[in-house]
Amino acid sequence: MNLFFQQIINGLTLGSIYGLVALGLTLVYGILHIPNFAHGALYMVGAFMSYFFMVDLGVHYWVAMAGSAAVVAILGILCERLVFHPLRNSPPIHDKIAAIGVLLFLEATIQMFWGSDFRRMSSPFTGIMNFDGLIIPEQRLLIIVGAFTLVIGLQLFLRKTMTGATIIAMAQSREGAFLVGIDSNRVAMMTFGISGALAAVAASLYAPINLVYPAMGHLVIMKAFVIIILGGMGSVPGAIVGGMIIGFAEAFGGFYISTAYKDIIAFGLLVLILSARPQGLFAKGAH
């Protein structure tokens, strides 16, 4: 029974991380209709930035995380300005290829500075909490709590502030938003900024119980895509629910079926879903 609860904790941890990454991806997709293949690279850069701030500059974990979020947010905004904005009227294949270009560049650049070795980054939260035999490492608890806090904060931002409302408005109708005088450039930049910051925070939270290396974004971005297809491209609640589904499927699948193939579960799920429903699981009807 204990092992079962352990898997629930694992599922929640994974689901939280995936949810945060997918959230950024789905925001960008919802507003700009760009499947940002470079999002996983932003996640990876986020981990390296935290690593750099903590290990090389010696600042505290929280400061490192904030710094990393800021750097990656700026990076996201730069991507929007330099790459995606000029391509907004191009054929749909172009922005995807450009996103791949950004991904390749970021990965190679990080690799040039830090090499392709696997690195460890330890957080101050190394303790283990024991609830009557149920063991929860502090960092995992931090991930779960941190992710929930962020999601709630983001919801409040989107629902309660003027800026958030403009983002939602633009996600619903680009032309409509333009007509009522929303500065679409500002919203696009902000969306990329938020998306980058979320990825950086997710990476900084997850890095202490995982490893930091240039290719660490690959699996995460692909799973994030699976999640947003599952939850509906552009849907915020969909990204969170989808993240949890994949997180739990992996935790339990990895434990009860096979560890070697746990990474395939998400993709198998995607193939099944899209084979049956080409528009995704929760997508509304055409137009």
Partner: peptide, 28 residues
């Protein structure tokens, strides 16, 4: 037959995943 029922982004993402499944199978 499966993937080409999907349009644009969905097709690209789907094939990205197919490519990764191929890699995983070869590795595992």
């Amino acid at each position: 037959v499966v993937s080409l029922r999907l349009k644009e982004h969905y097709f690209a993402i789907f094939t990205l995943c197919v490519g990764f499944i191929i890699y995983l199978l070869m590795d595992k």
